[in-house]
């Protein structure tokens, strides 16, 4: 197999650390030099499931540093329950890095990151990169309870200005995180968001209201994760740079085309989505 400049390949890795920042939340760190080296903020991996399971698990790349990368996931089904059983020293086979990450090249000096629940798993490396480049980063972090505001201190220590919201009011603002964002005293000039679909739709709404661009990292059910099956699509405008190869709309035809979340995404510009 040729050496790929993107590092894309199947990596047989070993788990080097495992922690549970909250009940039913697991961070698995693996030794994977190629992955760590080439991973871009907002990309994801597919984890080959334990024997007997049919579908691999798509997980955001949480941390990538030196020769180590990690994934963070909530234990919520059969496959994540199996993954949560793995311990240090166990093998984990990973395909990646996959997808386009967040588009950070021309980021403005003040960026807002909106993370909801497990969406936090896909935004840490973006925060780190933006801070390294001298940006100010405001984190809007929403979760059900204080306990589920996983690793909030990690973001604070990295230099983010953290605004938290919980559904039950056990920490920070009581309510949804996008309400907090809408009330920002000093709105950021760009939004990056990852979280459940209702939150992303709300981010798109707020972004339109305060007239700032927003990049949304979407979650869809994946089969292949590499663009082969067209199972995870989202409608976007045909004029988008992320539109797949497709003929222009015929007269009276639709102005949208279905793009693959795994391949053309998972990050899309909010104003280009027609969902």
């Amino acid at each position: 197999m040729p050496t790929l400049s993107t590092g894309e390949r199947v990596h047989v890795t070993k788990i080097v650390d495992r922690r549970t920042p909250a009940a039913d939340v697991v961070v698995l760190g693996v030794r994977a030099p190629q992955l760590a080296r080439f991973a871009k903020p907002g990309q994801f991996v597919m984890v080959v499931p334990p024997a007997g399971e049919v579908a691999s698990v798509a997980l955001g790349i949480y941390e990538a540093q030196g020769d180590r990368m990690s994934v963070l996931f909530f234990v919520s089904g059969k496959r994540t329950t199996e993954l949560a059983r793995l311990q240090e020293g166990d093998e984990l086979t990973i395909t990646g890095p996959l997808g386009n990450g967040f588009f950070l090249d021309d980021a403005p000096s003040e960026v807002g990151i909106v993370a909801g629940g497990v969406g936090v798993a896909s935004v840490l490396t973006s925060a780190q990169e933006l801070l390294k480049n001298g940006c100010r980063v405001q984190l809007y972090y929403g979760a059900r309870t204080q306990e589920r505001l996983v690793d909030m201190d990690l973001f604070a220590r990295a230099g983010c200005e953290v605004h938290a919201a919980t559904d039950d009011g056990s920490f920070g603002y009581r309510g949804v995180v996008t309400d907090l964002l809408a009330r920002a005293a000093r709105p950021p000039r760009l939004l990056l968001a990852c979280g459940p679909s209702p939150m992303l739709r709300a981010v798109a709404r707020v972004a339109a209201e305060i007239d700032i661009p927003a990049q949304l990292s979407l979650e869809e059910t994946f089969a292949c994760g590499v663009g082969g099956c067209w199972g995870c699509v989202v409608p976007i405008v045909r004029t988008s740079a992320q539109a797949p190869s497709f003929p222009p709309a015929v007269l009276g035809g639709s102005d949208v085309v279905n793009a693959r979340v795994c391949k053309e995404g998972p990050v899309f510009w909010a104003h280009e989505l027609r969902w």
Binding site: V54, A55, E220, T221, W230, G231, V233, N258
Partner: peptide, 19 residues
């Protein structure tokens, strides 16, 4: 344009698709 989403559902020992 293909079918509306969801196009995939994971099921026991397999998956359903309707692309």
């Amino acid at each position: 344009l293909g079918n509306p989403t969801p196009r995939l559902v994971h099921t026991p020992a397999g998956m359903l698709n309707a692309i």
